[in-house]
């Protein structure tokens, strides 16, 4: 890759890292990442991936920006309230780095469109905040063989895991089915410390860059859990389940499922 003088300056702190270099930076520029959700997690993940120079960054989100989002969704601001989140985030990321092609996809993700949406991308990032989407994205990535960096946050706790279909675990190896709707906190109950998505989204963006560069150890077969109140990180091993309904040799789930009933789907 021939860098312009501007790019040399912008990416110099990457280029001088032995693990990145000019070649690694060129890989980042060639990478195509698609993110599910432009909310709490999607904002910091997209922010850092845009800063890093990821060539193509697609954002899927069907919601518009509200004032109540601004406590944690750092790509949006008072001037973008009422705009689709994907457009608001596109403005922010493009202002940060015009090298990045941001693709705004204002759609509700479903079993009918997800495989088409992720087809042309190298890596999928899940920053959705509800179980139906989490399971849908997991199953679609397993079926399409796409690496998935999944993050979740609630109150003061968050978790991150990296799913490499065919190699490591998947979300259903951990929990076969989504919890029944009654067990999941409703929207009003689901508070979250505003800075928590910054921590978890930062970890997700790091995982994405490691996958692009092929460096380090991704959180494959592992779940990293963070507790903000205790300031503690805990890594749990997640073995592949040989009887997993979706990623095992003989899966029982071979078609995508939408679990919409009774769940809060606020992004």
């Amino acid at each position: 890759m021939n860098f312009t003088d501007e790019q040399l300056q912008r990416y110099s702190r990457h280029i001088i890292l032995p693990e990145v270099g000019g070649r690694g930076q060129a890989k980042i520029a060639d990478a195509k990442v698609i993110m599910v959700g432009a909310g709490g997690l999607g904002c910091p993940v997209g922010f850092y991936l845009a800063a890093a120079g990821v060539g193509t960054l697609a954002l899927i989100d069907n919601d518009t920006v509200e004032l109540s989002n601004l406590q944690r969704q750092i790509a949006h601001n008072v001037h973008t309230i009422g705009l689709p989140k994907v457009e608001s985030a596109q403005k922010t990321f493009t202002a940060l780095n015009p090298d990045v092609k941001v693709v705004p996809l204002k759609v509700r993700i479903s079993k009918d469109n997800i495989l088409d949406l992720i087809r042309d991308y190298d890596i999928v990032v899940d920053g959705s905040d509800n179980f139906p989407t989490r399971y849908l994205v997991n199953d679609a990535c397993v079926m399409a063989g796409k690496p998935l960096v999944s993050g979740a946050i609630l109150r003061f706790e968050g978790q991150v895991t990296t799913i490499i279909p065919g190699k490591g675990h998947c979300y259903r190896c951990l929990f076969e089915e989504p919890p029944p709707p009654g067990l999941v906190p409703s929207c009003q109950e689901a508070g979250v410390l505003g800075v928590l998505p910054g921590v978890i989204g930062g970890l997700q963006a790091t995982e994405v860059l490691k996958l692009i560069l092929g460096k380090g150890e991704p959180l494959m077969g592992e779940l990293l859990m963070y507790n903000a109140l205790n300031s503690s990180f805990r890594k749990v091993r997640v073995p592949r389940n040989p009887a997993c309904p979706v990623c095992s040799e003989s899966p029982t789930i071979t078609e995508l499922v939408d679990y919409n009933e009774g769940y809060c789907t606020l992004q």
Partner: peptide
Amino acid sequence: CPYTFVKAKLAIES
């Protein structure tokens, strides 16, 4: 610095 090293490193890589 750091462009001196950036240029030298890119040259070595090639």
